[in-house]
Design a protein around this nucleic acid. Structure first.
Lengths: 264, 264
DNA sequence: CGCGTTCTTGACTGCTTTCAAAGATGGTGG
DNA sequence: CCACCATCTTTGAAAGCAGTCAAGAACGCG
């Protein structure tokens, strides 16, 4: 079966909903992630599919949202990598969190929300508006789970910056990115797309690019990773995991259940 | 006028609602903070006042919530300081965020939520259940704003750990704590209650207690702060603010408006 | 007053940064 | 197809911020 690469225009709730749902879930990495967060109805999946028709594109290095600016509408990140950044007046820069395909941007519950951080495109990026989710719907649940995960990743980032060495930070971060990309179906046998420069990684991990470079070389020398041409290959994920007793986050009971017995 | 120190039992929506509201807002620091986040109706204030009758107390150094455990109900922190912590297997410890009077704990939107981090009482602490907030109510708005602020503080913490020196981290942190305590009415002319040990502060700022100690001495020598007997006095807040162009967070348009022209 | 916790101090180590410059890489246009 | 340029990666030497270890002083509580 050939999967649609771009959503055909004008598709609505149709005949073979079930097949469509399956197709969507594997064709769009964003859709794939969102459908994995909570059970969605066929209508909801169709709504997401529909929403993807409207695309906002941003070139790499463009500002998607600026600090202190009103947040208009919530978006879904369809493709590419973005991040939240804090820029200091003296040139220092800290990447606060990464935004990967399927992540939500600008999902605020208060009225007249202002962006608390700049959002910046690390690569070419495309967004679509996030469909409204009525209270207690499956989509609302998916949004809630996504929000809880985002918070959990912020906590991980704090612990990483506060207490891990450069060597540990890189390993811990790679494992987290692997898990997050895997949710969107973007990881194949521990090979992950890695569009970041070492400088961007340094800004993420609170290091200098020089030290990131040296530490990566250590990891390569130890045959733990390969990193060439925008792709990282984890050579011994098990050893990486045990070396810092890394554990994936889970924010709901259902989530933890699915970890014990993976769906696939 | 004498303010009630403990909420009298059985009070409901009464005669002099306006006066009551004013009294509550100054009597309970938690109530004071929540009422400042969004306009609340008299009924909502009464509900909060009512909720405070049920108190869960935790002694200092007790675990309030443990990682991976189901979150039963949302609570309001009435008094004392708590924190979210990540404990590493080798003894390292990172305090992820501080929980101050008026902060919400365990406010989750997803079903069957699990605690993502341990919550730990830094001092004796008392909590009460957070009243339910119907959608679009003032209370829901207050909860939403509180959640957005919490997220903003996590971003600040990440930037702090990633890119500031020990000296800068302490200043930045002190200013943030001042602002947060001020919302709850707990700051008087830049004197803040400071129940943390230098070790706890080290675990918050990703440093060692020895280095925190030395850095505090520098700040004292420079006549920037005093810290004695559980109280910190900021001696020159303006200089502290400009030294790292510190700016308070605002998460809504209304919020920013009130900064320009303070309500009191 | 006595004991445990917290704070303070010194000497030494080391991880990470800084500064600078040389290679590698990839995309573009002639 | 190759030269060229900008960006990114790699390397070296030296300095500095923060950590470690250890022990003594001060503080606060019962």
């Amino acid at each position: 079966m050939t999967l649609p690469m771009e959503p055909p225009v004008g598709t609505r709730v149709g005949l073979a909903m079930r097949d469509l749902a399956a197709a969507f879930a594997t064709s769009s990495s964003a859709l794939r992630r969102l459908t994995s967060l909570a059970p969605l109805s066929d209508q909801e999946i169709a709504a997401l599919y529909d929403a993807e028709r409207v695309r906002h594109r941003f070139a790499a290095h463009r500002e998607i949202m600026s600090e202190g600016t009103p947040v208009r509408e919530a978006s879904i990140l369809l493709s590419g990598w973005a991040c939240r950044v804090r820029q200091f007046s003296d040139g220092r820069r800290q990447i606060l969190s990464l935004l990967l395909p399927g992540d939500l941007i600008g999902m605020c519950r208060q009225r007249d929300p202002l962006a608390v951080t700049m959002v910046y495109a690390l690569t070419d990026v495309s967004l679509c508006p996030a469909p409204d989710a009525p209270p207690r719907s499956g989509l609302a649940e998916a949004y809630a789970v996504s929000g809880a995960l985002e918070e959990a990743y912020l906590f991980r980032q704090i612990a990483r910056l506060g207490r891990l060495s450069a060597y540990e930070r890189i390993i811990d971060w790679l494992l987290e990115i692997r898990d997050r990309l895997a949710e969107a179906g973007l990881v194949d046998s521990d090979r992950l797309p890695m569009p970041l420069t070492q400088e961007a990684l340094a800004d993420t991990l609170g290091l200098t690019s020089v030290h990131v470079n040296r530490t990566l070389q250590t990891l390569r020398r130890e045959k733990l990773i390969e990193w060439r041409g925008g792709v990282v290959q984890l050579l011994d994920p098990a050893r990486l995991v045990t070396s810092l007793d890394y554990q994936p986050v889970s924010v709901t009971k259902a989530d933890r259940a699915s970890e014990r017995s993976p769906a696939y």
